[in-house]
Design a protein around this nucleic acid. Structure first.
Lengths: 190, 190
DNA sequence: TATTATCTATCTAGTGATAGGTATTTTATT
DNA sequence: AATAAAATACCTATCACTAGATAGATAATA
């Protein structure tokens, strides 16, 4: 059945995404995935010939899902401050509450062994987020493009660094401290 | 000879450190190290029975070296602003100019497969740096301990995030942008 | 002689990947 | 509608290779 095929494919992607988030590209094998899905490793190869193909598919799905979930930064009905806080809080949920890293953050660490396609998708993902943040900051401060770009880079770097710090020190408190500047500079109840 | 032993041991550590910096814990094997050093893999096991032992040794050496290179943050002869810039610039040299990540940053990504000893050393490393930064910020702003801690977390997170951003986007400019706030807030020529 | 540092040779377990077979379901042809 | 052909999704079995690790021999040093 066609629907079975689709289910298996997405199951494989689900499982692979879980593995990548927890330990990166090298942390799982085709057999690990097969076992979790309930098929044999050869069947995983049937759907995704190489590991690179599999990771590329997972990446593409993740980016597309992530992008579609980002609210329109230019929508007049949406409050840019609330969107900013939503972005920060979303990051925190993943990193602190669920103890995971962003899929793309994890894969950035494995760039040297990833297929070129995946590396390009990685770069495009980062740029999607930066562009979104730039639009938010343009609305928040009504500043020029350059300063908004600066702020976007700073916030994004801060969030990633906060993740490492929280993981490295085993201290979730580090995350909030590292992010405090942005929460204070753009308070929710303005 | 004793000196031979020492040389081989430190050579092994040198090579291992290089591998970790470039690709993390999973990116190299005992055979890779043996080849680079010019011995056989069994001889690497002689010096460091397990991979965990080897990485623990590399970590310990790195932390000790890093700590001893940090200037005394409380020395009255040293300018805290210059020390801060030195810290930031040192980070940039590694990440942007040499294209590497900090050893500990890399290993944080492999925490799930690392021996507990290494994880503890990781946490201690982060705390050493945070403590150092806290002392610097205490001198810079003469503020209370809490605010200095906040700033230390923020700068440290910023630096790590800037590294990821620079690597992920293949755009070295991101690093400077992400770090710009700190360079402007504490300018060298005050 | 004992210790140190290295070697050769090998083990077990795991890796990504492929060949070839088998049902099952779709599609095309009669 | 019945049948042939083809595509789909899985399987078993296996390949070549690499991983970390160990046993036991050997040479050099103390």
């Amino acid at each position: 059945m066609v629907s079975d095929k689709v289910n298996t494919k997405s199951k494989i992607q689900d499982v692979a995404e879980g593995f990548i988030i927890k330990g990166g590209y090298d942390s799982f094998s085709f057999r690990d995935i097969a076992e979790a899905v309930g098929i044999k490793s050869a069947s995983v190869h049937y759907h995704y010939p190489t590991k690179g193909d599999l990771v590329a598919a997972v990446m593409a799905r993740y980016i597309s899902h992530f992008s579609s979930q980002l609210p329109d930064p230019l929508s007049v009905e949406l409050n840019p401050i609330e969107m900013l806080h939503g972005f920060i809080d979303g990051f925190k949920v993943k990193v602190v509450d669920q103890g995971n890293m962003s899929l793309c953050t994890m894969l950035t660490w494995n760039k040297s062994v990833l297929p070129d396609v995946v590396c390009e998708e990685l770069a495009s993902f980062y740029n999607i987020i930066l562009d979104w943040l730039i639009k938010i900051f343009m609305r928040l401060d009504s500043v020029n493009d350059e300063k908004a770009q600066l702020q976007a880079n700073q916030l994004f770097a801060c969030l990633h660094g906060a993740s490492i710090l929280a993981q490295g020190t085993n201290n979730a408190n580090c995350f909030d401290q590292a992010v405090a500047y942005w929460r204070m500079t753009y308070p929710l109840t303005a």
